[in-house]
Every structure is written in C-alpha cells, then in structure tokens.
Amino acid sequence: MALLQVQDLCVTLNTAHGPQEVISHINFSMEAGDKMGIVGESGCGKSITALALMSLLPRDSQTRGKIILEGRDILKLNSNKICSIRGNRIGMIFQEPMTALNPVKQIGAQVSESIYLHLKLTRKQTLERVSELMDKVGLPVSKFGLNLYPHQLSGGQRQRVMIAMAIACNPEILIADEPTTALDVTVQEQILDLIRDLADSSGMALIIISHDLGVIAQTAENVMVMYTGQSVEMGSTMDVFQNMSHPYTYGLFSAIPHVGSSVQLDRKRLNSIPGQVPELHLRPRGCNFADRCSRALKICKDKEPMATRVADHHQVWCYHPLTCEDKK
C-alpha cells in the first residue's frame, strides 16, 4: 500500500471574486523513499498543494478529494489528530528562510519545539536530539551554538535550521517548498545535496517544489508539471524531461537560457510563451493553456482534456501532445 495517496484533490479558496477553485483534480501516490518534484510558474498551485498536505490551508477554504496517509484520510481527521501528524509524520521546509524562522527565538528553541510537542522527551534527551540534528544539517553545536538568533546566520545556514526543524521527528514525508529559491547557486547545491542525502539515508519520501527545472531534474525521480492548479504532465523525470509532451512543459523548457548556450548557438531569441497565466476568475472553459498554446484547436477551448498515456507512468493532459518531430 502506498505511503501517501492523493486522490482527486480540489481546493477552493475565497477570493475577492468569490470562491475560486485554485487546485483541481490532483492525483498522485508515493511510496517510502520516493522523490517527487512539482514544477510550475508562480500561481500554478504548487504551494497550495503542499499546504493542503499539511492541512495548513486558510479556515474558509474548502477541500474535496482524499489525502490518504497510510490508510487514513487526513482530510477527515479532527484538528487534534492532524496536529499529531503535522510536523511529526509530515515535515515541511518553507520557502523563505528569512521569514519562516521566528526572529526573537533562539535557533535551539525553534528546532526543539516540535520535539517537545510530538516526541515527549525529557529536557536532556531533547537537547541531545537537537545537537544530533544540528550535526546532521551541518551546523555542529560546537561551532554554532544553540543560542544563536536567526539574524546571526546566513541565508544558507538559516535554511539548514529550517531543515533541522522539518526532520526533527523523523517524518515519513518531507515537503520542500522552493527550498533554494532565495539562495546563491553554490549554496543551493549544498542545500540540495543535504536534502537528498537526508532523504536517502532515512528513507523519507521527498516532495520537492520548485520553479527551477534544473533543481527538479537533479533531485526528483518523478515529476508533476502544474499549470493553473491542474497537473498537465506527470511521469518519471527521465520520461518527462527527455520526451516532454505537453506544449506548456516544452514552452517552459525552451524559455530558459541554458548554460553552454553561447558556445552552441549565436544569439538566438528565447522562445517565450506568449501571454501570461490567466487570473483565477478569468480561467477559460476548456484547457487552461489553450489561449497561450500554438497547437490549440476548437476542442481545446471547449472541453477540458483528459489524461492521455504517453508511456508507462507518463501521462499528459492534452488533446494534441507533442511528438518527437514537433520539437525539432
């Protein structure tokens, strides 16, 4: 049985334009040790998906579908029970290490918070556990001390503290929401290595959310590409990156300049995707990408596409997926 199963997850939020469905019909499942990536532009629902898994959505939001963690649907649990899962069984690394840490609390206290809450250890044991965690994330207590405040640390070090907090209770699932977006490339590399090593050594399932295709390619085994709250392409990272079938995935991929490009080609224009992500209340009736898609036909504007299988475990939500010839 799968560790985590998300079935037909829909989230509706109250906005200035009335209730709007921000996530529709997300399905995926994960086993222990899986590494899944979620990639997409801002506003596509990546972070809302993560918050739904943590049951951290605003109170006035409505969630439909199922999130089954080891046989229990966590959407049906009461808040006490969810509290015992959140931070304990599912850990999360938030996006901005600058704002996600409490500026007036020492880092030792922040890391020990969930240990106190969930593991019910004595003071001494907690302290031992915290120093063990700090060693693991590369901030040994002998050098960094637990009485430091977040402002005394650099961005990368703060992100390490965040990671220590997230893995404090040995969660089964670790969600990393844009863990390296605010960091320099060299620090990003260190943090990604750390997250990967931690996941490998403890058998945690990892959900990594990023807008950076490179980060996903190097970290995740499976990937889900999201656009306007829907999954548009899903499959193993190899399949999706080698044989991308959705026009949006392909558009994203060709919009980024690649390192090494100056050697191969002389000053070619970047292929940008025309237009912009439609606003929530202005989403079209059919395929949400149809207005920006060069392959869109009448059917795309009328009816939402269903999942089509490209290969084993590789699905695409498109009427006219790209074939190999199209990409030349």
Binding site: V185, L192, G214, Q218
Partner: peptide, 16 residues
C-alpha cells in the same frame, strides 16, 4: 568553475 558547476543541469541524465 565552482559557480558553473553548481548550476543544476536540466538534463536528468547529467547527474552531478
């Protein structure tokens, strides 16, 4: 060299 090496490659085949 360090900077260039640290850029994550979009090709999953080129693992670091």
């Amino acid at each position: 060299q360090t900077l260039l090496r640290a850029v994550p490659d979009v090709n999953p085949l080129n693992k670091k």
